[in-house]
């Protein structure tokens, strides 16, 4: 595995008025890894993802992707560089079918509307990639179903399929398992495990079992700062993390 990070931030800070949601975060994602971000509610995890995807502009600090600065780029430019993201809330186009949702995602990365208009080959390429993404996410049988008519779990799967259809290098997934039942959780966890081989994943997730099963690297955030970063085993064994986060988590569970 290469030691150069695929994505790295230095001193990344985001303030909303008086609130510092993300505070001088240094964060490195190595290629091919699953990197989970843990932390209690309000720790700044989603804000960090929004900064990485270009949906928010940092107040200070830098983000480098493949050693090129990307802070300050608008979201669509970041997406075109190969950083795909899914949102915490289900964010699909309800009136389009499953396949059409994926085509919409794939098309902009395959020459856009005009290429699909001008060349049949380009349009076919879009179809192929969309179908592939659906197949990976186990939704082939739902291809022509309107997205609004699917179950919540399937809509979450579709959201991952849409990110896949953009053929990203790096996927930023904001709570892909949120609100899922036990069976759905294990299905999507299996799906994410299958993606591990081909993509670099940054994952926000509250489901501890899934995080420990999937992640190789974990960053724990508290109050906008990085508390600790390390391998899954190191984080599991860390006193500091146990006190601040896992302890609290267990108290909540109790």
């Amino acid at each position: 595995m290469s030691n150069t990070p695929l994505l790295s931030t230095r001193g990344l800070t985001c303030r909303f008025g008086g609130l510092t949601a993300v505070d001088r975060v240094d964060f490195d994602v190595r290629p091919g890894q699953v990197h989970a971000i843990l932390g209690p509610n309000g720790a700044g995890k989603s804000t960090l993802i929004n900064l990485l995807s270009g949906e928010l502009r940092p107040s200070e600090g830098e983000i480098h992707y493949r050693q090129h600065p990307i802070h300050g780029l608008p979201a669509h430019r970041v997406a075109r560089l190969g950083i795909g993201r899914s949102h915490q809330k289900t964010n699909i186009f309800p009136r389009l079918s499953c396949l059409e949702n994926c085509r919409l995602a794939a098309r902009i990365h395959l020459g856009g509307v005009i290429a699909s208009w001008r060349s049949r080959a380009a349009a076919r390429q879009v179809d192929e990639r969309a179908e592939q993404a659906l197949a990976t996410c186990l939704l082939t049988h739902r291809a022509s179903t309107p997205a609004s008519a699917m179950s919540y779990g399937e809509q979450r799967q579709l959201q991952i399929a849409m990110v896949l259809a953009t053929a990203p290098t790096l996927m930023l997934l904001d709570e892909p398992l949120a609100g899922m039942g036990r069976e759905e959780t294990s299905r999507v966890t299996g799906l994410l495990r299958a993606l591990r081989d081909d993509y670099t994943l940054v994952l926000i997730e509250h489901d501890m079992d899934s995080v420990f099963a999937l992640a190789e690297q974990i960053t724990v955030m508290v109050d906008g700062r990085v508390l600790e970063t390390g391998t899954t085993a190191a984080i599991r064994g860390s006193e500091k993390v146990r006190d601040v986060y896992l302890g609290r988590h267990q108290q909540e569970q109790a």
């Binding site: 608008p74 979201a75 997406a79 795909g84 995602a105 902009i108 849409m162």
Partner: peptide, 8 residues
Amino acid sequence: RMQALGYA
């Protein structure tokens, strides 16, 4: 969402 997919 469209922007996050890559649409300007």
